[in-house]
Simulated assay, not measured.
Amino acid sequence: MSTVDLTAQTLDDALDTEGITLIDWWASWCGPCMKFGPIYEKASEQHDDITFAKINTETEQELSTAVGISSIPTLMAFRDGVMVFQQAGALPGPALDNLIEQVRALDMVEVKQKVAEQEAAAAAGGQA
């Protein structure tokens, strides 16, 4: 599977799915982005059960700002709609493969329980 381009209009639908979605935030003027692009594309061809998406920070400036992208490339990993990884910087191929395996191995029942606990604690803290 090759990568798909996402926009502010298509991001929510892409994340509202079961499974793994990786998002590469990039720009055409960014040297590290151009170096990471072929690595990301190759991984997309090797893992057809994962959605590999790209968001161009130049054309999606408002979205990039809203999400808090301050350095590119930035890679985000979502599983079952939950962000489980975010890091700026280009990853070498073996590191990307390792990340994919770690995301696959997550116990999502446990992850969602921890997210719910954090949200409940934040809500309780806001009411004090």
Results as ranks from 00 to 15, higher is better:
1 M>P: 09
1 M>N: 12
2 S>I: 09
3 T>N: 12
3 T>F: 00
7 T>W: 02
7 T>R: 03
7 T>E: 02
8 A>H: 04
8 A>R: 06
9 Q>R: 13
14 A>D: 01
14 A>Y: 02
15 L>E: 00
16 D>H: 10
18 E>W: 06
18 E>K: 10
18 E>L: 10
18 E>A: 12
19 G>L: 06
19 G>E: 05
19 G>T: 01
20 I>M: 02
21 T>R: 01
22 L>K: 00
25 W>T: 02
28 S>D: 15
30 C>P: 05
31 G>M: 11
32 P>S: 10
32 P>L: 07
33 C>I: 04
35 K>M: 15
35 K>P: 03
37 G>S: 15
38 P>G: 09
39 I>K: 04
40 Y>C: 07
40 Y>D: 06
40 Y>N: 05
40 Y>T: 05
41 E>S: 13
41 E>W: 08
42 K>T: 14
42 K>G: 08
47 H>T: 08
48 D>E: 13
49 D>M: 11
50 I>R: 02
51 T>Q: 07
51 T>F: 01
52 F>G: 00
52 F>P: 00
52 F>T: 00
53 A>L: 03
54 K>C: 10
54 K>F: 12
54 K>T: 13
55 I>Y: 05
58 E>C: 11
59 T>M: 11
62 E>W: 11
63 L>Q: 07
63 L>V: 07
64 S>Q: 13
66 A>E: 15
67 V>H: 04
68 G>D: 09
69 I>S: 02
69 I>N: 00
71 S>I: 07
71 S>K: 13
72 I>Y: 01
74 T>I: 06
74 T>L: 05
76 M>C: 09
79 R>I: 00
79 R>W: 00
82 V>M: 02
82 V>H: 01
84 V>I: 07
86 Q>P: 02
87 Q>R: 06
89 G>I: 04
90 A>D: 02
91 L>Y: 04
92 P>F: 03
92 P>S: 09
92 P>D: 06
94 P>H: 05
94 P>A: 04
94 P>S: 03
96 L>T: 05
97 D>K: 15
97 D>R: 08
97 D>E: 15
99 L>G: 02
100 I>T: 03
101 E>G: 10
101 E>T: 09
102 Q>R: 14
102 Q>I: 08
104 R>Q: 09
105 A>E: 10
106 L>W: 03
106 L>T: 04
107 D>F: 04
107 D>H: 11
108 M>H: 11
110 E>D: 15
110 E>W: 11
110 E>F: 08
111 V>K: 04
111 V>A: 05
111 V>P: 01
112 K>I: 05
113 Q>N: 13
113 Q>S: 14
115 V>T: 04
115 V>L: 11
116 A>V: 10
117 E>R: 09
117 E>F: 07
117 E>W: 09
118 Q>C: 12
119 E>D: 14
121 A>N: 10
121 A>R: 10
122 A>R: 14
122 A>Y: 13
122 A>V: 12
124 A>T: 11
125 G>W: 09
125 G>S: 13
128 A>C: 15
128 A>T: 14
